[in-house]
């Protein structure tokens, strides 16, 4: 035990993750694009926190249920009471967009963390034990990869039943494969290091070696990819809602609001953009939300690419 401790003692500033974190911070500071991304994400965080004040839900009602103001099909244009207007079926667009932010964070963060949890476990086991187990697990990863994410998620949601929670579960069941591959690669690399060999030599249990020695040093790329993944998870979830198999009707979800606008793309001959608000507002929300994460992630992308680093 003491040997392992001895070997592992590395000053904080020398630890891999600390160096990586410093490098990431530097990349973000140097890149105006990623700063813009950070600003957008910050804006949405504030929006999500302030949602109960910006768009107060009716007392006693589920805040994610968009209030309706009548049952007329034709959308109503923006007005002082409804700044973004009312979409098909008189659902309040402003309310839907604001609470849709909370939904987006829920989908993105839960989807990604669930995927990481599954992927990390599978990847670590495959990489650490190797051999047959590795072969089987990576074959499964290949299979999950073979079917495009949205289409596999469609099948999963269909099997699980239509609800937002099931969309999130479907996203996890699709998204873990990437993290499994990444973790496995990282574990395979770290496995060769001296301190792991030392820990193994003194007979540390597998679980301890994995959790204490290997994972902390190989987990880094996983987090980088996670930032890039949040945006695409939100995109997939909103596509499912758009196709009518995600959030139920009336749920505060951007994809669904756009689905409601589909019949209103064409205005009247006098005003071709008569119903512009129905698709413009929710679209801008999805687009900028995803853009924020992708701008931030773009600065990190080079970090994952060892050939482009440090020059």
């Amino acid at each position: 035990m003491s040997v392992a401790k001895e070997v592992k003692k590395v000053p904080l500033s020398e630890r891999i993750w600390f160096k990586e974190l410093k490098f990431m911070a530097k990349r973000v500071r140097e890149s105006p694009l990623s700063l813009a991304g950070l600003a957008i994400i910050f804006f949405y965080v504030v929006l999500a926190i302030l949602a109960p004040y910006l768009a107060p839900p009716k007392p006693g009602r589920d805040p994610f249920e968009i209030p309706r103001y009548g049952y007329v099909i034709t959308p109503s244009p923006p007005s002082p009471e409804h700044p973004f207007g009312l979409t098909q079926g008189q659902y309040d667009l402003f309310y839907g967009c604001i609470w849709g932010t909370v939904t987006a964070f829920r989908v993105g963060l839960l989807g990604v963390s669930g995927s990481i949890l599954i992927g990390l476990t599978v990847g670590a086991i495959a990489g650490y034990f190797g051999g047959k187990i590795d072969e089987i697990l990576m074959r499964i990863v290949d299979i999950v990869y073979a079917i495009p994410g949205l289409i596999l998620a469609m099948a999963f949601v269909l099997a699980l039943g239509q609800s937002l929670d099931n969309v999130i579960i479907a996203l996890m069941l699709v998204g873990w494969a990437t993290y499994a591959r990444l973790t496995r690669a990282g574990v395979l690399q770290v496995k060769q290091e001296d301190y792991v060999e030392a820990a193994r030599a003194i007979g540390s249990p597998h679980r301890r070696i994995l959790l204490r020695h290997i994972l902390p040093n190989s987990i880094f790329p996983v987090f980088v990819v996670a930032t890039l993944d949040i945006g695409s998870m939100v995109l997939t979830a909103s596509a499912l809602s758009f196709l009518g198999i995600g959030a139920p009707l009336g749920y505060a979800d951007w994809g669904q609001l756009i689905a409601l606008s589909r019949n209103w793309l064409i205005g009247t001959p006098e005003n071709p953009f008569e119903y512009w608000y129905t698709y413009t507002y929710p679209g801008i929300f999805i687009f900028t939300f995803v853009l924020g994460w992708n701008l931030l992630g773009d600065a990190f992308r080079d970090i994952l690419d060892p050939t482009l680093r440090r020059r």
Partner: peptide, 25 residues
Amino acid sequence: RVLAIVGWSLPTFWSAIILLAIFYG
């Protein structure tokens, strides 16, 4: 790079809707 990130971030269904609203509607 910005073009690529924008394309990457656009929801396919939304860009399709915008294209239709402009070029058809």
